[in-house]
């Protein structure tokens, strides 16, 4: 059974139909990369998955349970599906450490000491263990993004969603973030990643999904997808990216 399964999802902003009958799934331990041109609906799909956007129609099954209709609390669901944003969105009024603690204490109701230990563990994991008491505004983009990943991990998420996590970074910082993500993939964490880093997708993704104008046009096993794209639009897109 898929960990997350999306069936016939529809989403419009006013008259603009952004998602049209979208079907999508991710299995436990799978890394899926979402690619596609600007405005094709990648972010919208990802934001629907953790309900930052409410879909107009269709269903989102989490472990077989439809989260749009079930009694499952949305906030409980969100703790299991972590999100890493292009613009980091770290809490600027808290230290790096508190960024990773507050959710555990206020949402998961964990004991402060346990939360502290857990936060330190994940901050070490992303190589930010020496910045516990720094303020996010003092960090570089790559450092902020690694803290954001630690913040999501500290919630014991089962899936991480990444929306262009390296697009706002200076080129020399892209790798420090991709390296962290690569390690997480190797550890078997389930991830859905919207990215323009094709080499990373080719190397790390199990499956690549190509979106075009609100529909999933093509998907496939990563190597096969990049070496043998079937659709014209896919070939066009990959050709453009390679230039």
């Amino acid at each position: 059974m898929a960990l997350i399964e999306i069936n016939h999802l529809g989403k419009s902003f006013g008259t603009l139909e952004v998602l049209k009958d979208t079907n999508f799934h991710v299995d436990q331990g799978e890394v899926v990369c979402l690619i596609g041109s600007s405005g094709s609906g990648k972010s919208t799909l990802l934001r629907c998955v953790n309900l930052l956007e409410t879909p107009d129609s269709g269903e989102i099954l989490y472990k077989g349970e439809n989260i749009l209709t079930s009694k499952m609390n949305i906030n409980t669901y969100r703790t299991k599906v972590g999100m890493v944003f292009q613009s980091f969105n770290l809490f600027n009024n808290m230290s790096v450490l508190d960024n990773c603690i507050i959710g555990q204490v206020k949402v998961l109701k964990k004991n402060k000491n346990v939360a502290h230990e857990n936060a330190v563990k994940y901050l070490n994991k992303v190589g930010m263990g020496n910045f516990l008491h720094a303020n996010p505004t003092q960090l570089s983009g790559g450092q902020k993004q690694r803290v954001a990943i630690a913040r999501a991990l500290a919630m014991d998420s089962e899936v991480l969603l990444f929306d262009e996590p390296t697009s706002a970074l200076d080129p020399e910082m892209v790798n420090e973030v991709l390296n962290v993500m690569r390690d997480l993939a190797n550890e078997g964490l389930t991830m859905i990643i919207v990215t323009h880093e094709m080499n990373f997708a080719k190397e790390v993704a199990n499956r690549v999904v190509f979106m075009d104008r609100g529909i999933i046009l093509e998907e496939g096993e990563a190597k096969e997808f990049f070496n043998n794209p079937k659709e014209e639009r896919t070939k066009e897109f990959l050709g453009m990216i390679r230039k």
Partner: peptide, 22 residues
């Protein structure tokens, strides 16, 4: 910044918690 609220919501905070803590 609107992203502060989204960050808070993404880790499961309620509207009230996001408002109060962030």
């Amino acid at each position: 910044d609107k992203g502060q609220n989204e960050g808070a919501r993404s880790i499961g905070m309620t509207d009230m918690q996001a408002m109060f803590y962030v």
